[in-house]
Design a protein around this nucleic acid. Sequence first.
DNA 1: CGAGTTATTGATACACTGTCGCAAGTTTAT
DNA 2: ATAAACTTGCGACAGTGTATCAATAACTCG
Lengths: 153, 153
Amino acid sequence: MAHASSDQTPATWRHSAEVALRAAGLRCTFPRRAILDWIAAATGPFTAEQLVAALEAQHGSSSRATIYRLLDWLQSAGWLTRIYSDGTQHAYARFWPGHHHTAVCVRCGSAAVISECHVEESIRPALAALDFEIHGHVLELYGVCTNCRTRAD
Amino acid sequence: MAHASSDQTPATWRHSAEVALRAAGLRCTFPRRAILDWIAAATGPFTAEQLVAALEAQHGSSSRATIYRLLDWLQSAGWLTRIYSDGTQHAYARFWPGHHHTAVCVRCGSAAVISECHVEESIRPALAALDFEIHGHVLELYGVCTNCRTRAD
DNA sequence: CGAGTTATTGATACACTGTCGCAAGTTTAT
DNA sequence: ATAAACTTGCGACAGTGTATCAATAACTCG
Ligand SMILES: [Zn+2]
Ligand SMILES: [Zn+2]
Ligand SMILES: [Zn+2]
Ligand SMILES: [Zn+2]
């Protein structure tokens, strides 16, 4: 599934995810649209429960089951990336399919995406010594973003 | 089994962790010894619940609360490394304090430790573009270990 | 458009993980 | 031995995620 779109704005993400949903034979229902809208408007990583709470406050909210079901699909299709290290909750960030990493700010929680990746080539010697056949990896970076740093100074 | 130095055996880990426990002013009680024994005997990553279940089957088992309390301490002191990507459960692998990464076999679950790390230097250009001040990172590798691969062939 | 087909929803009940507070029990120091 | 301090385990609890299934909504096609 190649995504030819060049601008990766929230609105484009929103539209492309819906297109992909339909292409997968899934229906674009009202509850699903509400979920996609909320995710598109999110400015950083979020947990499933944050989404549940936010939609609960809305008129015509989606149920917890529906939310979790769509989150699962969006992640498996690559439209969300799972943030593993954020506690034991299911946490995600909006994403474009493809290999990438996230740089998470420990102060404000914003996540930047880094698509460049040389991890496997740099780790290859160590893996060769182990005779380990690599299939993939997860990398998350922690630090302070430029906004938070200038504010603190 | 290409682990670095020969003194990082399970038995040495077991002993050193107990020494560290005492040095921290904590008491080395019977339940805690049972937990350390089980972890020392583990051959790969494990979840908190696996440990709970294993000790429940033993005579004079430790309670869930005691187990979780010690796991927390062991992780914060660096004697266990947390495996974030293994579902939503608290999963750990035995570890020696220091920066490292794990290569987890997706077939047998064994985890090898890789102490060599060039992640931050290889990612530095991308972070510089973001003006992101890095404090740390988590990297987990997935693949198939040499044992599982030769067995399949 | 309307009927038929199929996917989807949401309510509820449930299982599982992990946490908390506290009285009773251990360990250690004197 | 006694006292002080730490630790345990129970049990109750909260949070997170899953399973079920009848009712409903979305899509398809004529
Ligand atoms: Zn920030
Ligand atoms: Zn990568
Ligand atoms: Zn293996
Ligand atoms: Zn590293």
